[in-house]
Design a protein around this nucleic acid. Structure first.
Lengths: 360, 360
DNA sequence: TTGAAAGCGCTAACAT
DNA sequence: ATGTTAGCGCTTTCAA
């Protein structure tokens, strides 16, 4: 017996990687069966406290760590959640990612990160989702190929669209209240006495940008204003900077600009201030959407509609948990998380505030 | 045979999750052995082109995706790299994370994200690194418990410290040239005619902050200047804001502040400008380190020492690849990536520039 | 080039 | 409460 153990050990030391102790090793050392070791590490399984303690002690001595890969193989659950994200330069996304990963960890789930660049197709990440048998996939980004989500659905991997939708009702989503928020901002700007509006859009095919735009436009039109000027900023700083230049050079310069998100709004403020010498909040009002951290900095002091990323993340995790709990292909969930208007100084304020009242 | 297939299908449909096709399924359908299917999906294994094509075709029909979990179990490699990161609010880190994940994907590796909060111990993530048999761990964050890295080393999981070191030479690291950069900034400030210096530190136990501080101080002292004033900003915006207030209220207000990173420098600029009404770059000079995107924005226009995150990430991946290629416990690697001084307007410029010459 | 067979380390019935 | 056994889906010798 000793000889064999030595041989095994030898082999391991020579092998390409020195294997960690396995449940069998622990079992031998503890004089129990391997199944008992497994039980010791499975909460809620029937095992006497004495043996469990002994196994734990020996496991620690041997540096045993249960191999979760092997566990996944048998259990069919990987406890891995994919997070597809595209633009970490937008602080809203990096804040989201941090919160998401933290919350997933609390729920006992690990985060597998998929980043993409605009120019590449997202087929490789897709495959990985399936190939690693991820328990769920959260899509924060927009550039994943169209058939992607449905492919996952087919493979019974729950997909949750975060901060966007794709028109397919069968795919769960968590979004902010884009239409309400955009209307609230429109109301605020109208109440502030603005007359010539502009909108800086994100990516043209973004549901989020479109929802915000339509809410904004609808409110304006309902109150007798012409459709706003329009430029596209692609959700990037540079894109929004260029869009702002175009708008501010146009013959009928707007007196209020609504940017589809804060990230772009900071660009707009920079351009208005430093290239056009405008005093933002007096000569030109700029508002955004999200309430990223930079929005509260004095150099921006951005009036915006705050999204509750914390609640959005929580809702996402709730959905994942729900879908995991149910074995049946549960019905898709669509959660809309309320936000609120945050008034700072980047937009002229109304004298009297009948804002909330007129938001309906 | 048909009956059995049906039974199997039945079982699957009833089971908790509908299993994807396996290699056995494909093998049956293709009339080959399961091993052959495995070969078809293993690049470089000996298989005729005809059979591989046929297997691919059938695999596609069946929606087969090789189970990478199972592959990991046999191969002993997970192709997973852990990324430990703490503060995604610092743009340098989110930019790094994006680049890292993208580059890892190019190398065929997946990223598993570990985020931590200051208040929690990082033991849980540690366990996961071992338990998921990660191929490597990149530590961007600082708050992992001290015994952590050595525990991984013991388990033969290569650990790479990114943008920091921990004094243990046995652990690989990739850092910027902190001392050189800090000296370059000191030289620039001295050449600009500044006389009363201050330093805003990051976390006190951060090797990065300490290296930058000592480089800065050394250069100052070598040129006959007193040690700078000092305040701690903890690498956060709020911390740096508070530190700046303290410094600017001190009896001998500094005329130049070096912040241990750009993220804090933006806070310092905000406070100097908006709370103290100082014209940054004329009445008070502020410099940072990293060259994050915000540094080039007009509202900050920060003079800083640029870190090449792209090269740092590349170097990290090279190390991982090297360590993975070698089966032997390869010697730790310590890479220092050069950066460069980026001169903008947040610090008064020297009239003549003998900066580079005097940096040695 | 292909097949057969032996695991990888674990979970989960089924016995005892 | 514990042991026995049969897989999970793959890779990898070893034969043919």
């Amino acid at each position: 017996m000793m000889a064999m153990d030595d041989a095994v050990r030898m082999e391991r030391a020579i092998g390409s990687r020195i294997a960690l102790a396995t449940a069998v090793d622990v079992a031998h050392a503890a004089g129990v069966s391997q199944a008992t070791v497994s039980r010791a590490f499975t909460p809620g399984s029937s095992i006497s406290e004495a043996t469990r303690d002994r196994i734990f002690r020996i496991a620690e001595q041997l540096g045993y760590q249960p191999n979760l890969i092997a566990r996944s193989l048998t259990s069919g659950r990987s406890n891995l959640v994919g997070i597809g994200i595209e633009n970490l330069r937008n602080p809203f996304f990096s804040e989201t990612l941090e919160a998401m990963s933290l919350e997933l960890a609390k729920a006992g789930l690990r985060s597998m990160l998929f980043t993409t660049r605009d120019d590449e197709t997202a087929d490789t990440p897709v495959q990985d989702v399936l190939r690693y048998r991820l328990d769920a996939l959260v899509l924060v980004s927009a550039t994943f190929s169209s058939g992607f989500a449905s492919q996952c659905q087919a493979a019974r991997v729950p997909v949750i669209l975060y901060n966007r939708t794709n028109g397919d009702e069968r795919i769960s989503s968590v979004t902010g209240d884009n239409v309400f928020g955009a209307r609230a901002l429109a109301a605020f700007l109208i109440a502030g006495g603005h007359r010539r509006f502009a909108f800086i859009a994100g990516l043209e095919d973004s549901s989020t940008s479109r929802a915000r735009e339509s809410g904004f436009n609808a409110y304006l039109s309902e109150h007798g204003f012409a459709a706003p000027l329009r430029a596209t900023g692609d959700f990037t700083y540079e894109g929004a900077a260029a869009a702002t230049r175009r708008l501010l050079l146009s013959p009928d310069r707007p007196d209020a600009i609504f940017c589809a998100n804060d990230h772009m709004a900071t660009a707009a403020i920079d351009i208005a201030q430093f290239e056009f010498g405008l005093e933002v909040g007096r000569e030109l009002s700029i508002v955004g959407f999200d309430d990223i951290q930079a929005a509260s900095r004095p150099c921006y002091s951005l009036t915006t509609f705050a999204q509750r990323a914390d609640l959005m993340v929580r809702a996402t995790i709730d959905i994942i948990r729900g879908l995991r709990a149910n074995d049946a292909p549960a019905a898709p969930v669509h959660r809309i998380i309320n936000g609120e208007l945050v008034i700072r100084t980047s937009a002229r304020r109304p004298t009297r505030s009948a804002i909330t009242a007129s938001t309906t």
